[in-house]
Simulated scan of single mutants.
Amino acid sequence: MFADENRNVRPAEIQEDVSREDIVSAFRQAMVGHFRSHIPGTNINESTLLASDYLNHFHELVMLLEALSSEPQGFTDDLLSWRPLTYEEHFSQSGFRDKNLAIAAYRRAPPKIRARFDEAVARLHGEALTLVASVGAALMDRDKDLDKTCNKAAAQLRVLIEEANAIANGEIASERGDSDIGGQAAIDALFGNR
């Protein structure tokens, strides 16, 4: 019976004038809907499709800097071996319950939001590496102001982490110029005005 029904359908009736872009858009919407249906109960934001848990990687660096200021001998090797991980590397190596979903959702995140998040993370990576190098140099020089250097580095990272976290949680408008609060906070932190 089913075979008979299929014989009555002609390929010309199935095919419509649909552009490739329309098909891609429909597929993207279906995938986003699919991810959102699995997101409740996870730490993945339903509108951005990003998991702020990724930023724990940078929170660990902040904690290292804070611990290093009081106990340099115990944490120097950990600090000097720290390296930034990409979003996918972090979740691949983590014990995050929904890591495969987090990676798949990240790949399907709205392009403008993901671009802003990736830019914020790139700033975090660059600043983190710069700060690790400067704190490492202070350790080698046995800088008397190590505590101040570590606290300033931690404060600078916190500002950038907050900016990336706001993007991941959909708290910052997706277009530049809508809000420059994070940029001013970063400048204030660099000059110790936070």
Rank of each mutant, 00 (worst) to 15 (best):
L129M: 06
I172K: 11
R116I: 04
H125Q: 12
R116L: 14
T130K: 15
P111T: 05
D147Q: 13
D188F: 13
P111L: 07
K148L: 13
D143W: 05
G183T: 07
G183M: 06
L157F: 05
A189M: 00
D143H: 09
A166T: 04
C150A: 13
S134R: 15
N169I: 02
A155L: 08
A173S: 10
I167K: 10
A186M: 09
V159P: 09
A186I: 15
A155M: 12
L124N: 01
L124S: 07
A173K: 11
N151R: 06
S174L: 06
L129Q: 06
D180Y: 07
L139C: 03
L157S: 03
R142W: 05
L157K: 00
K148Q: 11
D145Y: 10
A154Y: 00
N151C: 03
A168W: 13
A173E: 12
K152G: 00
A115D: 03
K152S: 05
V159T: 08
R176L: 03
G183H: 02
D118K: 08
G182K: 05
G170Q: 00
L129D: 01
L190D: 04
A189V: 11
V121Y: 00
D188K: 10
G126S: 13
L146M: 15
L131Y: 06
N169H: 01
L139F: 11
A153P: 02
K148G: 05
D141H: 07
Q184H: 14
P111V: 15
D180E: 14
G126E: 06
A133D: 09
R123T: 02
R142S: 14
F117Y: 12
E163I: 01
Q184D: 08
G183D: 06
G183W: 02
E127Y: 05
E127W: 07
E175K: 12
I167L: 13
G177C: 00
L160G: 11
G170N: 01
K148S: 13
R158Q: 02
G126F: 04
S174I: 08
